Simulated assay, not measured.
Amino acid sequence: MAYSTAINQRFMQPHFAGDISVDADHIGYMATVGAQQQGVVLSVLVAVNLATQQIDAAQFKVYGCGACIAVADLLCERLIGLSLKQVQSFNTQDLGAELDLPMVKMHCTWLAAEALEKMTTDWQLANPID
């Protein structure tokens, strides 16, 4: 299967792979979804600024295909600067469209949505919104 240029660029040189260091001005949230037995595991880590309640940093770890790496990398880029309400309304299908993701790889965007749902649940429990 041939991937788009956008997928190949993010797969070959991801900018948001790795860990996050959380300092006293931030709180970290992490969501891990998927299963190695199914071929993909995605962890999304964010650092939320305690004063602004916005994401200041986002990183990911993936065990999976190049398309999942590309989706996770773009997801982390798009999360920076968002509030809880904005993350809750984030449409991961847009990531697939932007990357020109093949239909057979759309499960990568669903996995990203699952990670966001899990992460925002933890965030909301820690900081209920009106």
Rank of each mutant, 00 (worst) to 15 (best):
Y3E: 10
T5G: 10
T5M: 13
N8I: 09
Q9G: 01
Q9A: 14
R10S: 08
R10N: 11
R10P: 06
F16R: 14
F16P: 00
G18D: 11
I20Q: 01
I20K: 03
S21D: 13
V22M: 12
D23A: 02
D23E: 07
D23K: 10
A24I: 03
D25M: 12
H26E: 15
I27D: 05
G28E: 04
G28K: 13
M30C: 13
A31D: 01
A31H: 04
T32Q: 14
V33G: 05
G34W: 02
G34C: 01
A35N: 13
Q36N: 09
G39S: 02
V40P: 00
V40I: 11
V41N: 02
V41S: 01
L42H: 10
S43G: 01
S43C: 03
V44Y: 08
L45C: 05
V46S: 06
V46Y: 01
V46K: 08
V46R: 07
A47F: 11
V48H: 10
N49F: 03
N49G: 05
N49M: 04
L50P: 03
L50C: 02
L50M: 02
L50H: 00
A51H: 13
T52S: 15
Q53E: 06
I55H: 06
I55K: 12
D56W: 01
Q59A: 15
Q59E: 00
Q59Y: 02
F60G: 03
K61S: 04
Y63N: 13
Y63Q: 14
C65E: 11
C65M: 11
G66A: 08
A67V: 10
A67K: 12
C68P: 00
C68W: 03
I69R: 04
V71R: 08
D73L: 09
D73Y: 09
L74D: 12
L74V: 07
L74H: 10
C76M: 09
E77I: 04
E77R: 01
E77M: 08
L79W: 08
I80F: 07
L82Y: 00
L82N: 07
S83E: 01
L84M: 12
L84S: 14
L84H: 13
Q86I: 09
S89G: 10
F90R: 08
T92S: 08
T92M: 03
Q93W: 03
Q93A: 15
D94K: 09
L95F: 02
L95H: 05
L95T: 10
G96Y: 00
G96K: 01
A97W: 00
E98D: 14
E98L: 14
D100C: 06
P102W: 04
P102A: 05
P102M: 06
K105G: 01
H107K: 09
C108A: 14
L111I: 08
A113S: 15
E114W: 00
